[in-house]
Design a protein around this nucleic acid. Sequence first.
DNA 1: GGTGACCGGGG
DNA 2: GTGTACGGTCACC
Length: 617
Amino acid sequence: MAACRNPSGTTEILESRGHGNAGEADLINQLGAKVKAVDPDVIENHNLHGFDLPFLVRRARILGVQLTLGRAGLPALRVRAARRGSASTPDGRRVRFVAPGRELIDTLDAVLRYDFATRELPNHRLKTVARHLGIAGPDREYIKGAQIYEVYRRDPERVRRYATADVQEVAGVARMLGGAAFALAQMAPRRYERVADAGAATGIIDPLLVRAYLRSGTALPAHQPGDGTPHSGAALHLFAAGVARRVVKADVASLYPSLMRSYRIGPARDHLGAMLTLVDRLVELRLAAKASARQSAPESAERYGYEAVSAAMKLVVNSAYGYLAAGGLTRFADVQAANEVTRRGRETLELVCGELASRGVTLLEADTDGVYFAVPDHWTEPDERRVVAEVAALLPLLVQLEFEGRYSAMLSHEPKNYALLGYDGALLLRGVAFRSSRAEPFGQAFLRYAVARLLAGDVPGVREAYVTTLDRLRGRHFAAREVASCVRLSKTWAQYLQVRDSRRELPYEALLAAGRKSWSVGDRILVYRRKSGAAGLIEDSEDAVAGIDSAKERDYDIDHYARLLRQTFAVRLACAFSPADFEVVFADPDQMSLFMPSVATIQTVLGKKPPTQTVDC
DNA sequence: GGTGACCGGGG
DNA sequence: GTGTACGGTCACC
């Protein structure tokens, strides 16, 4: 079965009329005939190049039928090398398919590009993205992948609804996220499908530069391998660790392209100065598109178009620096120029920090293009905005320091690792120290709650969170699932057997204990440590065959998880207290001395760090 | 701490 | 025949 959405917006379902191979061959022929009849310029789907096309090609080959998706006279699918797509060759190189005369657009590419900027999506599955973007219907049909065949045999109408909802969601995702690539395709001398999946540097900037040279009749510089100059990175400072109140974030908008424009930093081999001309032009286009978007009606096609252009320009402008730094890989790469950009960046950040500090704020942390600082108690928001504006006025015209946000409190832990409490009560956790895919749910929940209490100024609440979590562990109130860790399997059964004698690994021991001897490298499983050090596996309750639902087991190793609570989770709050106070807040209630001071009087601290901690990254 | 391998996503 | 081919995370050295 296949669902197709025509350019007119109607959805059609193709289904095989025969049985077995004959029916499947018939379906592939129907698909070819349908594509020929509708004759679309663009064929799009989610993971089109990673699943649908390689699947169809494989089945067509096995069944000995022609899969005709290309335009008249050029029916055969071709392949091109790609970094993502279908892994067809034994050496692991990947390819994407090309249907001559049509554009094969994968909405997954647009989703990856979108999430690169926003970092909001828990994963990139079609259903998740559709829900996130608000385009999933309220009564949308869901069926698990593994159950589709069985449901189809029982209730084909349900699968038809499911497939129809899928293609409608793909159309919605393409409409909302595909605009940038479509806008760029009208500007860059590359076909749409290449612009949609290429990186901005090699896929867009490079061809634009080449076109500029061709148009001016100037010879292109030869490729030059990098001369081994090491690439220096951005500045990263931790000024203070602990709890700060009245926190402000200021940052420079598009720092690197602004520095390139302001100080005229471009590739040395670019004698035409095409890169800087391009960046100047794209920034102007972006500003014009943003202004036009503001003037057009909300939700109008016009507005989406302008916003797409603006997003596309931002993407390309921001990759100009990446192009410079891509040592030796691209025609105009220039590590020295890239280093000059980062040097100016560090200089700018240092100037901003110094000027802010001299105006009476307490610096907390600074990273690349932005700085968090705390202001004195009596300052108002206009005071905060005024110092940022004063410092902004000291920077070059094109380098714009902006007031980015204000927060009631911050837990500054390490560079790139902190928690923020908004004035609206919203809690934001940043960095691997506070959110990790492998964190045990009970620990993650404790950490989130404890940080919220800490930033609210409620130290007894932090202690209570710790004691409650310990109690619930010791009373086995948590289900095994809540103490389990999600791990990715990186070894095969045979590979693990080779190292098993020297070092036992919990995930594989859990699989063995559960009687599972076959798995795929890359599979993710939930494992936990059981009493007596044995390994426990949480079976997906839908797949569990035996009558025991392991998710409801509670036979975990209490001491192990109590240690984990303290040594992995509670320590994230250590910088907020003096060492002695930390011991009091996180004292084991079973081992409390009678002379323990009360937590009610404990104050959080903010410890200053030595001022020169520049890290290259 | 740096480097290389591998994942994503689909049914 | 030659060049091209995403960005992030995690394991492992």
